[in-house]
Design a protein around this nucleic acid. Structure first.
Lengths: 219, 219
DNA sequence: AACTCACATATTGTCGACAATATACTCTAT
DNA sequence: ATAGAGTATATTGTCGACAATATGTGAGTT
């Protein structure tokens, strides 16, 4: 029997992750066409592998494809950003609600420590917080909700699209410290096992973020 | 130039729809293995087409697959049902909220008429309402929210899984008339352009439904 | 009898080729 | 010169075959 049950990573997995990173990062630019033969050459795999990767990318809303025409990277639009954040508000609000009930005391304790360490970093370096810290905080609450459907939809489904908007529109700025306080309050509600308040605060937090993004989107 | 821009349906599309129906209906039973060669023979298409269909079914959470092992139809569990309905509560609540703002007066008027016709049917035949009427009501509100992300996640993503639970666990019974009243109240809130109330009523409606399902699930 | 290891079988992963469809181009007619 | 039709090219959709991995079977050992 194998002790190390390491899950095997297929070519399609690697291609999918590679392409996903390139798209989020912008190396493959938003709205551009994804030619199967071209990618096949570039990545050194067969078209079958590329096609499977593209299907998965479509499932997480990073590409759109039409039959007999092909796949394109999604376009980043103001409307799309708003719609995405409305979905996020809804789902992460529910995640916070469930986390207030389902997170273990250990997880909550660990999250307190994470926020403390963020506080130290915030004072010295603003950028770190926005790029990794915020993501990490939300990530832990999503995991803490213990609802596998919700986790899948958020992490596999829309998380990377959110990252794509953040990376390519360059999120950072004056919201850093206020966002930090909002995180603190959300965690407090979860610590108090108050689902209603946790959901409300998370939704407000996301609405605020959306509004601040909207301002910057004079693209 | 073609006048009728009918979108071409590929073999993979047809297979996907066929398999989806069979899974929802239970012809392919929950939890069973989906063998690629077997399906390939049965449906008379190549494995490539089957594989693409299976990938799409995985994207709507109707099958789960492991690398080098294969795909299985999802199992229907009490826990899964609860998780699914929590997601539904969150997303359809948001849909109702947005519908209160974004639905056109014409759409609202049409929905009033739909409910009236349901009322007639409810009095004579209970089953119709639960199977088609309820679905149709929710469907129209989802479309009415005008948020394409939300629409995609609900319709393409989890709608059919909900149907699968409903069909295979046999939903019907004493909730018919109370559910009808709840629909009426939700629509009233939307008519009044009251997003907060619309969301709250929709969420309650779904929570009630979940609880009544949970009672029947002594499976 | 139960366990382990090796082998045989079946299934999934990947590939290259052909068919069907869409796109780009050229040539003609107005 | 422009619009349209027809052809040429390229891309996507589908297929069958081979390679890699997992599953099932049976012999051999304790």
């Amino acid at each position: 029997m194998n002790f190390f049950d390491e899950n095997p990573i297929t070519s399609a997995d690697k291609c999918f992750i590679q392409l996903r990173n390139d798209i989020v990062k912008g190396s493959i630019e938003a709205g551009s066409k994804l030619s199967e033969p071209e990618l096949s050459n570039k990545l050194g795999v067969s078209r079958a592998v590329i096609r499977e990767s593209l299907n998965r990318l479509e499932a997480c809303h990073l590409v759109e494809s039409k039959a007999n025409v092909g796949a394109r990277v999604v376009a980043l639009t103001a409307q799309g950003l708003i719609e995405l954040y409305q979905v996020r508000e809804s789902l992460e609000g529910m995640a916070a609600r469930l986390a207030a009930v389902n997170m273990s005391d250990e997880e909550i304790e660990a999250l307190h420590k994470l926020l403390s360490s963020h506080f130290e970093t915030v004072k010295s370096d603003e950028t770190y917080y926005q790029e990794a810290g915020d993501v990490d905080f939300h990530y832990r609450i999503i995991i803490g909700c213990k609802n596998n459907h919700l986790i899948t939809i958020l992490i596999d489904g829309i998380y990377h699209l959110i990252r794509m908007y953040r990376v390519q529109l360059g999120m950072s700025g004056p919201r850093v410290t206020t966002a930090f306080d909002e995180h603190k309050n959300i965690l407090q509600a979860i610590s108090n096992r108050d689902p209603d308040l946790a959901e409300m605060l998370m939704r407000r937090h996301i609405v605020y973020t959306r509004k601040s993004l909207k301002n910057k989107l004079i693209v």
